[in-house]
């Protein structure tokens, strides 16, 4: 794939460029910013993250797993009666299950984060440069090689301080 990456000093210039690129019906791959910005996110049109789904699945697994595990362990030694309670003393197990729900959900959320960002990280790598984590904003637009100068010019018009062609 060939793309053009443009760098901007200010966020509003980036937003302008995105709007311009949209107007030209260009394929916006992604934008770069040193910090989270909901406006950029909206302008680029990033799809919904699957992290919540991962978390939910992790939580359900943790809840069921925690409860099942505790019940299974006490049934290994059915004579271990404690304090007059039955073997399966659900109120105490609920506490353990709650904690395991949280634990597995947290791990799943993080796994979801890594899994979700993975594809884009590979694409972004070629377009990346260190100033993007300091103060600059970037925009990566997909193109065919012939269009690159035109797009570069479009970006410059929108306020880009520099642009270049990337291949990945």
């Amino acid at each position: 794939m060939i793309g053009v990456v443009a760098l901007f000093e200010v966020r509003d210039a980036l937003l302008d460029a995105i709007a311009a690129a949209r107007a030209q019906q260009l394929t916006i791959v992604t934008a770069f910013s040193p910090a989270y910005d909901p406006r950029i996110e909206a302008a680029v049109g990033v799809p919904r993250s699957a992290v919540s789904a991962w978390t939910f699945a992790g939580g359900v697994a943790g809840a069921i797993g925690g409860m099942a595990f505790t019940i299974w362990t006490v049934r290994q030694w059915p004579i271990l009666i404690l304090g007059g309670k039955p073997l399966v003393a659900l109120p105490s197990f609920l506490i353990v299950a709650f904690e395991s729900t949280i634990l597995i959900a947290v791990c799943a959320a993080l796994a979801g984060f890594f899994a979700g960002g993975r594809a884009m990280r590979r694409v972004a790598r070629a377009a990346y440069e260190p100033s993007l984590s300091e103060e600059r904003f970037g925009l990566l637009v997909a193109c065919v090689s012939a269009d690159a100068p035109l797009i570069g010019e479009l970006m410059t018009r929108s306020g880009a301080t520099a642009w270049r062609v990337v291949r990945s």
């Binding site: 934008a31 910013s33 978390t55 709650f98 959320a109 884009m120 972004a124």
Partner: peptide
């Protein structure tokens, strides 16, 4: 491998919010 692309930020933000929520429940527990 963080590159700060809008996609990554989206997942980041989502995960961060979810974790914040979970940890709030956790800390009280």
């Amino acid at each position: 491998g963080w590159r700060g692309s809008a996609h990554e930020w989206r997942h980041f933000r989502s995960a961060y919010a979810v974790l914040a929520g979970l940890i709030t429940a956790l800390v009280i527990s």
